[in-house]
Each structure stands twice: as C-alpha cells, then as structure tokens.
Simulated assay, not measured.
Amino acid sequence: MTLFPTFVNATKLMKPHFEKALESLPPVTFMITDGFLGWTLDSANKFGIPRLVYYGMSAFTTALTISATSLLRTKLSDDEYFQVPDFLWIKITRNDFDSPLRDRDPKGPHFDFIMELIMATSKSYGQLVNSFYELESVYVDYCNRISSPKSWCVGPFCAVHEPSKEKQEKPSYIKWLDGMLEQGKQVLYVAFGTQAELSPEQFKEIKIGLEKSEVNFLWVVRKSIDEVDDGFENRVKNRGLMVTEWVDQREILSHGSVEGFLSHCGWNSVVESICAKVPILAWPMMADQHLNARMVVEEIKIGLRVETCDGSVRGFVKWEGLEKPIRELMEGEKGKEGRKKVKEIGEAAINAVKEGGSSWQTLNELIHELTERRQV
C-alpha cells in the first residue's frame, strides 16, 4: 500500500491510449470508470460523454466520511468515541478511518490524490453504488442532498448473476462442504480479502482461536500450506479445511452448510454475505472496512465483532477474542438474531434487482435519462 499513490498516478499515462480507443468506438452514450481513475473525466469531457463513477463503497461509508471530516481535524484521540454530526445515533472513532482521512492535518501525495479524485467525482454525471435503496435510504438521501454527483443504487450486483448451466467438476473445497452438509454440520467460512496482510503473530492467534472454538471451518489463506502447517492442519483435519487456491466466494457463501462468515468487511464481501443470507463476524483491517463493520454490527445488526486486546478497533486480536465470538455467531443467541435479520435483508436485496424492484427501476431511470440526453 505504500506504493499506492505512485501506482494510481502512473495510470494517468494510459490517457492517450484510452482516448484513442474511445475514438475507435461507435458513438458512446455514457462511460463507467473506477473512481480512482479521475483522469478519465477529462477524456469524457473531450468526447462529450457523461462519466459515471464507481468506488465499490456503501452510501453509509460515504455519508459518514463527509459528515465526520470536520471532527477528524480536531484533537480527538484515536479511540475516543464521538457522535457523527448528521447522524447522532451513530458513534465512531478516529480509528474507524484510514490515513490520510483520519489525520488532523492531512497532507502529502496520497491526500493530494484523494482531493483530486473528489474534485473529479463532483464534476461527473453520477455515482453508481453496489447497494439497494431500502438498505441505505437515509445515507443515499443525505449524499444526494449535500454532495454531487447523484448516487444511484443499482445493486446488489451479485444478486443478478445467473449461474452457469454447464456441468463442471466441483472444486475440492465444494466437495468438502458437500460432505459437511451430508453430515448435518454447520461451517464457518473464513476469508480476509486480497489486500490485508496478517502478521505471523496474528496468524498464529487465528489458528489457536479456530482450533479452540471447536467449530467446523473453511479458511482461505494467502500462504502456502508449508508456511502454515505446524501440525495445525492435522489436528483439525476432521472439521477444518485450509485453502490456498482462488475460490468462488459466492459459491461458498451460498452453500447450504455455511452458516457464518469471519470477514474483513470489504463492501463486496458484505453484500455477498447479505445476498447469501449468512451472518458476519466482523474483523475490519483497512480502507472502508471499519465503517462497514459498524454498519454490519450496529446499524443493520447482521453480525458480531471480534474482540481486540485493548478495545481499540485496530488492536491485536488474541485467540480468546476470536474463540468467544465465533462460538456466539455459530451457536449463540446473538448469532441466531443475526441469522434471522440477514435473512430478511437478504430477501429485500434479491427483490431489489428483480423486475419492478428499487434497483431495477433506478437502473431503468438512469438508462432512460442518459439515452434522452444523448438524443438531445
């Protein structure tokens, strides 16, 4: 991540090639570009093409970031709770934000780049949100009232996916889940995304926590088994599977045996868990994940949170802080409540993208608006 500003600034070198590609296309009605490619706004304006932005974040995160910015510039300590000015029922800390947004006096290349993106976004035609209005209506309305451009909820994207009709060989991890289902066993899915780095010490605590919890689990790790195995795999072989290959997360979450998700709370993972109706044990690590975790646990109440040693949202997690909430998620009353709630929200998510649903109507409205604009 230290190379992030350098990398994203380097993408600007693609601009002439991007514009050459645009010139070769038939007339374009609109373009959708990653929010981090702010330079595409110049290209869009050059060719008179409306630019829609996609950041892959929730409206909840966007709204809280806008509302809390002024307080983050004060002397509040890192773990001191404060009320979000426009949403007084929500309490968060400075540690729920990443640098440079959390800094009292933000500056430097990364902050300059973020300001550049904000400016490009504000001058774009609209912002697509991988969410549905019923889930975040208060935050969508807030964003549309006080900032530009308009946010359009057209998701969840994963809920409109048509599974392949072709018969293919099942991956080994799905066969393993099938076996657990046949035995009537519930499984905890464990995955922390593709960016977060776990220290060796933290990795060790996860192994101990999973082992002592005595739950069945499928854990996707970004290490070779040789690096991982100190006898752990053998000790949990009847109830735990470690996978180092790429997995189809949506297929895992929708499997009948999976009843919980220990997650870093990246927004895509949250949305996929909602659509699969699986409650979440939140362990945020970076970017927007801490605010997503707040939403999961405190706002929509579809899960629990791991317990850090010092109570800070960025603190080290000992095995005890993992074992207890794992058991609660999979077997306890709070887990049952989260499971009931996520089923309700999951149904609403799926209905949103069906014909006549809120996201279906929003997408229709957006396409109609853009088509009319082009004809004018």
Rank of each mutant, 00 (worst) to 15 (best):
V271C: 06
K123D: 02
D34A: 03
F60C: 09
L72C: 03
L71K: 14
E347D: 11
V306D: 03
G56A: 08
R327C: 11
A293R: 00
G48K: 10
R250E: 14
R145T: 13
S263P: 04
E307Q: 07
L218C: 10
V317Y: 05
A21M: 13
R305V: 12
R327F: 02
G184A: 08
E23T: 09
G332I: 02
L188G: 02
S151A: 03
Y133K: 14
K123R: 12
K12A: 12
E166I: 11
D79S: 11
S257I: 04
E369Q: 15
T2K: 04
K167F: 07
R374T: 08
G184R: 08
T194M: 07
P100N: 12
M286W: 08
Q186A: 15
M286Y: 12
D78E: 15
T61G: 04
M57G: 01
E299L: 01
E251T: 12
A44L: 04
D288E: 14
C265M: 04
V221P: 00
Y54C: 01
L177N: 06
N9T: 07
P279H: 09
P85Q: 08
F36E: 03
K170L: 15
R294C: 10
P100Q: 10
M330Y: 09
V160F: 03
L363D: 04
S77Q: 14
S164W: 01
M1P: 00
Y142H: 13
F192H: 03
V270C: 14
Y189N: 09
H264Y: 01
L88N: 10
G48I: 10
V376M: 13
E331Q: 14
D42R: 04
F132C: 12
R314L: 01
E299K: 14
Y173A: 05
G356I: 12
S312A: 15
K324A: 13
D42E: 13
C143V: 10
N95T: 05
G193Q: 11
F217I: 02
L76F: 12
R73H: 11
L291G: 07
M330W: 13
T6V: 05
S257V: 06
L304P: 00
T40R: 11
E299F: 00
L37S: 02
L76G: 04
D141Q: 09
R235K: 12
C158H: 01
M31Y: 01
A276V: 09
I367L: 15
R94N: 05
W360L: 03
M31H: 03
G35A: 11
Q127P: 00
D248N: 15
Y133G: 06
P109N: 12
H264G: 07
P100Y: 05
T11R: 07
V342H: 13
D310N: 15
A120G: 07
T62V: 06
E337H: 04
A293V: 05
K15E: 14
F316K: 13
N268F: 07
V84R: 09
D178Y: 10
P284R: 08
